[in-house]
Design a binder for these strands. Sequence first.
DNA 1: CGGGGTCTTGATTTCATTCAAAAATGGTGG
DNA 2: CCACCATTTTTGAATGAAATCAAGACCCCG
Lengths: 213, 213
Amino acid sequence: MYRPAIAPIEMPVTERIARAGETLFLEGDPCDYVYELREGIARGVNFMASGERQISAFFFSGDQIGLPLGDRYRYTAEAVTELRYVLHSRSGWNEAFLRNCRDGGQFLQSIGAEQDPIFRRGIVIGRHGLLVRICAFLMVMIDRLPSDGSDFIFPLTQSDIGAYLATTPESVCRGFRQLREMGAIATPKRDRLRILDREMIESIASGADHWGI
Amino acid sequence: MYRPAIAPIEMPVTERIARAGETLFLEGDPCDYVYELREGIARGVNFMASGERQISAFFFSGDQIGLPLGDRYRYTAEAVTELRYVLHSRSGWNEAFLRNCRDGGQFLQSIGAEQDPIFRRGIVIGRHGLLVRICAFLMVMIDRLPSDGSDFIFPLTQSDIGAYLATTPESVCRGFRQLREMGAIATPKRDRLRILDREMIESIASGADHWGI
DNA sequence: CGGGGTCTTGATTTCATTCAAAAATGGTGG
DNA sequence: CCACCATTTTTGAATGAAATCAAGACCCCG
């Protein structure tokens, strides 16, 4: 489990805002800037030649995305919710990274923090069975989602969840319904998620055939 | 597209050998060593609690795997074929990395080289349709596979391919048969692969409905 | 109070999985 | 070189799960 941005980068920066749906950067563009998310949720999107759309990761407050591991961005980044973020120029980020390297031993963690959700999504969609995938997805999300008292703030459309899970919105809907009927979750509002039985979700995600006991 | 190990790390090292099937390191173990592959193919494996097995990436000669982006390995690494490799201690690797950072601007590429195949696998298995996934897989592999004149050396079992593609060995077999019947590939021996019609494979991988034209 | 997008639901179809068994392959030792 | 073994590949038939197609309900926005 990776924690976001263990080593915050100190620079003179101005905070920016992106509206829901806005694009931060495009897959294939040169990595000129690193985006440090301060508030909100972003998605990494990849478009196939056929028009299929995949979401390769969701990113949260504290994450740094668009790190120059290659010279081009590997995904398009879009705001899911309104987003507060700051830009770091590639050269500025490199310098800060180097400074940071010399000081602590933790200097690679911020890279792991971007790569980890991508890795985990690969594992999630490699699982067999719709419910398993949905529950594995929930387990990945709920320790990053902001919470509103008893509920998580869950502003993802079922289309986005489908694009993340490599399934259809209809199937996502049916999966959520089943979890609701099993008493595992509740969705009091469209953008709220309440976890009623975390153990059941974990158990399903772990692939157990019989839930309970 | 990432090239492996743009910045080879110079250190006093002794080359080691792993036999096919041997384990290099285990998921969850502390990242004490970086493994630099000199020859052969390795696989990154993840086991689910239920016993499912996923292959999250294949790695090739020139790749550095097990980089300390976190403090634990995220996958188990196993030799697919006999493997020549060298070990770098974490601290030694860190030092070399830092030295390397100061010199060139390319210093993050070796990290990208490990992350990229993982990322690409996520995209591949997010595609819809067996043939599409198989062809996307082939496109990812064939620019890393060693070649033997006209054929690629392709020592992967269909079980491994299935574990990579999140499908079954039987389905992999049927997919390959179909590609053979379409004249896209040939498999003269168990561990050889000949690409007869690369464009057809690309076209299928791109998601085109009608192949040809 | 519309109206567009999202969510929900049902009926049907399609595709991959499963199960089972035979054939092929590669390796081993006699 | 050949017989034998273990493993992998191949194939078929039946099953099952999710996609698709098509409508209707709901929600939030202006």
